[in-house]
Write a protein that binds this DNA or RNA. Structure first.
Length: 224
DNA sequence: CCAGACGTTGTT
DNA sequence: GTCTGG
DNA sequence: CCAGACGTTGTT
DNA sequence: GTCTGG
């Protein structure tokens, strides 16, 4: 599962990682505690097939939703079934994206309370979480673009804390996932699998991160 | 035909 | 929007 | 995901 | 307990 993550890297680093030539006109402050309903940084294809960086509201709001509130429960989609679920299948076929991250959190219940863990790539690099996006039109003609993060079974590195994890895609698969050439659903589905042992490392962090309002380096500090 | 659901997680 | 249940 | 709220009336 | 907000 993935209900909180980090993107501490700069926009320039993200653009470089995703091979995007021009930077957007907005900025991206380092984020240590990205939570549902907030804007995350995603990469998708423009109408003419170029990669662009966009900010999407985390929590997918289906186009038929009556209010945007529905989105706060659709923050994840199971990779095994998203292609057939009414809320996700259209987006699976036509609106796949990559969400930029450099860490994610999971919680483990203990006698003392909820202990958060930070998961990162073993080399501390950026990574891409497979996502699906939608455009929703409100009553006043306001458009909101939202996103859900796909999940897969836990990898050997992560299963001790939680049995699910975000679907992380290797760089070689970005073009296929984004649809830079026509790709069957089944081929996209096959890309969604847990990373091999040794890809990720984890460490417990301070419960400071538990509060969604908290932000900054204290979120990734060791427990006190 | 119309009405109502449409999702994940974790816990039991 | 699209499918399922009644 | 976790934390925090969970309500109405009338008046300003 | 359950829903909302971040």
């Amino acid at each position: 599962m993935c209900g909180r993550f980090t993107l501490r890297a700069t926009l320039a680093d993200v653009a470089d990682y995703f091979r995007i030539d021009h930077l957007p006109d907005w900025d991206w402050p380092a984020r240590f505690n990205l939570a549902p309903t907030q804007a995350v940084l995603a990469v998708r294809l423009t109408g003419d097939g170029r990669r662009e960086m966009v900010r999407l509201r985390w929590g997918l709001i289906p186009s038929w939703a009556k209010d945007l509130n529905i989105g706060s429960r659709l923050i994840n989609a199971r990779a095994e079934t998203a292609h057939e679920k009414p809320s996700f299948r259209t987006a699976f076929a036509r609106r796949r994206c990559l969400v930029a991250a450099d860490g994610y959190y999971e919680w483990k219940k203990t006698e003392a309370g909820k202990q958060p863990y930070l998961f990162e790539m073993s080399d501390r690099s950026l990574f891409a979480i497979a996502g699906l996006w939608e455009r929703w039109l409100g009553d006043e003609g306001d458009a909101i673009e939202s996103v859900t993060l796909l999940t897969v079974p836990a990898s050997p590195d992560t299963e001790a804390v939680h049995h699910r994890m975000p679907a992380i895609l290797p760089r070689e698969q970005f073009g296929t996932w984004l649809g830079e050439s026509p790709t069957a659903d089944s081929r996209c589905r096959a890309l969604l699998r847990p990373p091999s042992e040794g890809t990720l490392r984890m460490r417990p962090v301070s419960s400071f991160v538990n509060r969604p309002m908290h932000e900054g380096p204290q979120c990734v500090a060791p427990p006190r």
